[in-house]
Design a protein around this nucleic acid. Sequence first.
DNA 1: CTCGTGACTTACG
DNA 2: ACGTAAGCCACGA
Length: 106
Amino acid sequence: MSDNFSEQIYLQLIKVPKGKITTYKALAHSLGSRAYQAVGTAMKNNPYAPKVPCHRVVLSDGSIGGFMGKKTGKTVTKKIKMLNKEGVKVVNGKVVNFASKLFDFE
DNA sequence: CTCGTGACTTACG
DNA sequence: ACGTAAGCCACGA
């Protein structure tokens, strides 16, 4: 497992400080690829969980993404609460002040 | 190698 | 603003 690509995604995600978040686009772009979908694919694989806080990754609009929306929030709802606890306020499946909490990859 | 799917993004109507 | 279509990359069969 851990093809270089997926591994980079996890590394970047882990690199994100607490209370901050990132988007699929920025994440993929930081890897030097446009694998927006690949990022999601790697997330659903998430072999590094909970080391890899996939809930810290949101859509370009700041929406949580396909976590909830499908099955009345089950696992996701919990993560949302966790985010709120860390300082990332999530309401109605969207991040509050999300642009300001966005983490810039160096 | 080819096909289908996906926790995505952008563009057009 | 919303819905559909096409494009993007990676992974599984």
